[in-house]
Lab assay of single mutants.
Amino acid sequence: MATGGRRGAAAAPLLVAVAALLLGAAGHLYPGEVCPGMDIRNNLTRLHELENCSVIEGHLQILLMFKTRPEDFRDLSFPKLIMITDYLLLFRVYGLESLKDLFPNLTVIRGSRLFFNYALVIFEMVHLKELGLYNLMNITRGSVRIEKNNELCYLATIDWSRILDSVEDNYIVLNKDDNEECGDICPGTAKGKTNCPATVINGQFVERCWTHSHCQKVCPTICKSHGCTAEGLCCHSECLGNCSQPDDPTKCVACRNFYLDGRCVETCPPPYYHFQDWRCVNFSFCQDLHHKCKNSRRQGCHQYVIHNNKCIPECPSGYTMNSSNLLCTPCLGPCPKVCHLLEGEKTIDSVTSAQELRGCTVINGSLIINIRGGNNLAAELEANLGLIEEISGYLKIRRSYALVSLSFFRKLRLIRGETLEIGNYSFYALDNQNLRQLWDWSKHNLTITQGKLFFHYNPKLCLSEIHKMEEVSGTKGRQERNDIALKTNGDQASCENELLKFSYIRTSFDKI
């Protein structure tokens, strides 16, 4: 039985969820670079991206490699990797027998973001014989899940209580170790020597080791999670996991709180800001991140802002960003909400898709409305799209047979046209069989910064309504002859009103 693990408890099935942008060198404390989270699957090609990484700022997932063999891993080693800020997950990587050479110096898994409450997941690794993470000293947050690894031993010899604050939620089941077939031998045991430290858990006094050649490092209890030197002297209180010299914040392997210019500090002093819960960055760093993602459509890219001495992905609820200094300031009234469309555009074809934009005031991208039916549609669209004030790209209304009016965009005031449909149009209306009105132009103002209007096959939309939009939106004169079809717009509506004058002759039985 794995020490510190839980057996036999019912657990939810383990679901495996399925960018080499360097964020800056980590400095003297770390020998390499800070790398983003990685999802490495199918083959070993991307694994080489770990070569210079000291910190993975995010998670590391290595999974679904069915053609790899043990010899493929023999020359692979990433000794610079010290810390993973989120979680480490391995799933069905064939041929991998140990992690001792792959990650010989991995010391800390912070667990800032977890995989279903777990910071370390080893699942269905069919050839893994031992973990071998002999320098792993601290899992700051989260638990361990090690399950269905039929060859995995050296679990009962690990004292997880020396690595985690609590072992109650560890789930370590259905491994070879369960069948008591392992016969784990710690260093020196074969020669009758006791080389590794022994600890007591559940009444068992057991030597602690990761492999037959690597003991588990056990520091004096007084050192807590700070770690200790090879001689057993406690590291500085700002260290986490390990250090090369005692009581020196510049000799830590990793930091308990924050890293700044080669030393570990309790908090980031001005003019620095907390970033990702582990390091200090200056304003320029946060500003660069903001600008890199301002026009990016890459998933996970955030326009970072500053709030409460932190550089964070977005302002919290009730705050909006001051564009001059990136500071989050309290909103006066309802907060603006910028919604970034991942692929640059979004099609609204149902109430469900409209709900995804609920509360958005600025759309960074283009909207395509293609709704053919739905219950209580006008009210639903207004509830979900009615706060949109600005669209950076274009607005396209296409084959939306259920629409009679666009009044559900009740606050839309600006279409920038930074991206144009077919390279020309910022407003595009095609084949809307029941569209009769755009907006009530006596109450609604709309500016279209650039781009043209396109109207074709809107049989109940009168040309007068379209011409009014040209005047109000500032697009009059931009359109070419064929942009607004004269014969297919309003051709099934009563669009022309003329005053009919009647004269009559009164007659009676005795007068003409």
Rank of each mutant, 00 (worst) to 15 (best):
Y30R: 02
P31S: 15
P31V: 07
C35Y: 00
G37P: 06
M38W: 03
D39A: 12
N42K: 06
N43Y: 05
L44Y: 09
L44R: 07
L44M: 07
L44N: 04
R46S: 14
L47W: 02
L47E: 01
H48D: 04
E49H: 04
E49C: 15
L50Q: 01
C53T: 00
C53S: 01
S54Q: 11
S54D: 02
V55F: 03
I56V: 06
E57V: 10
H59R: 08
L60I: 04
L60H: 00
L60D: 01
Q61P: 00
I62T: 01
I62H: 01
I62F: 05
L63Y: 09
L64D: 15
M65P: 01
F66W: 14
T68K: 11
T68H: 09
P70T: 07
E71L: 03
E71S: 12
E71A: 11
E71G: 13
D72N: 15
R74P: 01
R74T: 14
D75V: 12
L76C: 15
F78M: 08
K80N: 12
K80G: 10
I82T: 10
I82K: 06
M83V: 04
M83N: 01
T85P: 00
T85L: 07
T85V: 05
D86Q: 10
Y87F: 02
Y87N: 01
L88C: 01
L89S: 02
L90S: 01
L90M: 14
F91L: 05
R92A: 15
V93I: 03
Y94T: 02
Y94R: 09
G95P: 00
E97R: 12
S98Y: 03
L99K: 00
L99Y: 01
K100G: 11
K100V: 10
D101S: 15
F103L: 03
F103N: 00
F103K: 01
P104D: 00
P104I: 01
N105M: 04
N105E: 03
T107F: 05
V108H: 12
I109L: 07
I109M: 03
R110Y: 03
G111F: 01
G111H: 02
S112K: 11
R113I: 10
R113A: 05
L114M: 07
F115N: 01
F115G: 00
N117H: 08
N117M: 12
L120Y: 01
V121C: 12
V121W: 05
V121P: 00
K129C: 07
G132M: 01
L133S: 04
Y134F: 13
N135E: 05
N135P: 03
L136F: 05
L136A: 01
L136Y: 01
T140L: 06
T140S: 08
T140H: 11
R141W: 10
R141H: 12
G142S: 02
V144A: 04
E147P: 01
E147L: 11
K148L: 15
N149V: 04
N150Q: 12
L152S: 03
C153H: 04
Y154S: 11
L155H: 15
A156S: 10
A156N: 15
A156T: 06
A156H: 05
T157G: 07
T157H: 14
I158W: 05
D159I: 08
W160I: 02
W160M: 13
I163H: 01
L164E: 15
L164H: 10
D165F: 14
D165Q: 05
S166L: 08
V167H: 10
E168D: 05
D169V: 12
D169Y: 06
I172S: 13
V173Y: 03
V173C: 15
N175K: 14
N175D: 15
K176V: 04
D178F: 09
N179H: 11
E180Q: 13
C182P: 14
G183W: 03
G183H: 06
I185P: 09
P187D: 10
T189V: 09
A190W: 08
A190C: 06
K191F: 14
K193C: 15
T194P: 11
T194D: 07
N195D: 06
N195I: 08
C196G: 14
C196L: 13
P197R: 12
A198K: 08
A198V: 06
A198P: 09
A198D: 11
T199E: 05
T199C: 12
T199S: 07
V200F: 14
V200S: 12
N202L: 06
N202W: 08
Q204V: 06
R208E: 08
C209M: 02
C209S: 03
C209V: 03
C209A: 05
C209P: 03
T211D: 13
H212G: 05
H212C: 15
S213N: 07
S213Q: 12
S213H: 06
H214R: 05
H214Q: 08
H214C: 15
C215R: 15
C215E: 14
Q216S: 04
K217N: 15
V218I: 14
V218H: 12
P220F: 02
P220L: 05
I222L: 05
K224T: 08
S225M: 06
S225V: 05
G227S: 12
C228S: 03
T229A: 04
T229L: 11
E231F: 15
C234F: 03
C235W: 01
H236W: 01
S237A: 12
S237T: 06
S237W: 08
E238T: 11
G241R: 07
N242Q: 14
C243W: 01
P246F: 11
P246G: 12
D248R: 02
D248L: 03
C252L: 00
R256E: 05
F258Q: 12
L260S: 02
G262T: 11
R263Q: 00
C264Y: 00
C264L: 00
V265N: 00
C268L: 01
C268W: 00
P270W: 11
P270S: 02
P271V: 03
Y273E: 01
Y273G: 02
Y273L: 10
F275V: 03
Q276A: 10
Q276R: 08
D277Y: 13
R279N: 04
C280W: 00
C280Q: 01
C280F: 01
F283L: 07
F285C: 04
F285T: 11
F285S: 03
C286N: 00
D288T: 05
H290W: 14
K292L: 13
C293V: 03
K294V: 03
N295R: 15
N295S: 10
S296Y: 15
S296F: 11
R297E: 06
R298M: 03
Q299T: 06
G300H: 14
G300E: 06
G300N: 05
Q303R: 13
V305F: 04
V305M: 07
V305C: 08
I306Q: 03
N308G: 04
N309F: 12
C311F: 01
P313Y: 03
P313N: 06
P313V: 03
P313A: 06
E314R: 13
E314L: 04
G318V: 02
G318R: 03
T320Y: 11
T320A: 08
S323N: 03
S323A: 12
N325E: 10
L326C: 03
C328G: 01
C328Y: 01
T329V: 08
C331W: 15
P334H: 06
P334S: 08
P336Y: 08
P336M: 08
